[in-house]
């Protein structure tokens, strides 16, 4: 839920990166963290297992700039992608303002993408949110791998509502900021409507 604080002149919004296990959600955040100036970001918090799999969430606050005298801060979260972390994954969606679905473009991960997307819609519904009404971006990640599904086929399978689709290679930063901008713009545009 967006917070507008008149006293500190700040707008705070929450964006969640969702997707199947090992699709690159944490890698997206890591790239944003590594490429952002120190004064624009807070700490990157990772609640991960000993093997670096996300256990609960990753979190980083990011300041984008000022609009109408208000600092805009985006709180970026990832969810744990592994199927058995369902309970904690759902908790992270509470109060979300915008969602990025990170799809793994590899052929063998197609079923995992579909399952995760279905799971996202279901978990949003449990809070009374509708994916169709939420700022939302589809990222097709890992485009550099050899066995990837063509973007058109992935889009046909995974696009839900004409949302922006961004091709990405999060490990080297391709498409990461385009994805963030696409979702952040939608969140701010929604703010205008509300």
């Amino acid at each position: 839920m967006t917070f507008i604080n008149y006293a500190s002149r700040e707008i705070n919004c929450k964006i969640v990166y969702y997707g199947p296990g090992l699709c690159g959600k944490t890698t997206n955040l890591q790239h944003i963290y590594d490429s952002t100036a120190a004064q624009s970001k807070g700490k990157l918090i990772s609640l991960a297992t000993e093997t670096d799999r996300t256990l609960f969430f990753d979190f980083m606050p990011l300041e984008l700039g000022t609009v109408r005298g208000f600092k805009t801060r985006f709180h970026l979260y990832t969810v744990p992608g592994q199927v058995f972390y369902e309970a904690s994954r759902k908790l992270i969606l509470k109060g979300v303002d915008g969602v990025v679905f990170v799809a793994d473009s590899q052929e063998e991960r197609m079923d995992a993408n579909i399952e995760s997307l279905y799971n996202l819609e279901e978990n949003l519904r449990s809070y009374g949110y509708e994916l169709m009404k939420l700022p939302y971006v589809l990222q097709l990640n890992k485009r550099d791998l050899p066995n990837v599904v063509p973007p058109a086929d992935l889009t046909a399978e995974l696009q839900r509502k004409g949302e922006p689709v961004v091709e990405a290679i999060a490990s080297n930063g391709v498409g990461v900021f385009d994805t963030l901008k696409a979702v952040a713009k939608q969140v701010l545009t929604e703010l205008r409507k509300s």
Binding site: I11, G65, A184
Partner: peptide
Amino acid sequence: SLPFGEITDEEIDSLFSQ
């Protein structure tokens, strides 16, 4: 009376070029 009711596309775009 929310402060961003009148926000323009240009203002949103400008955030990403600051």
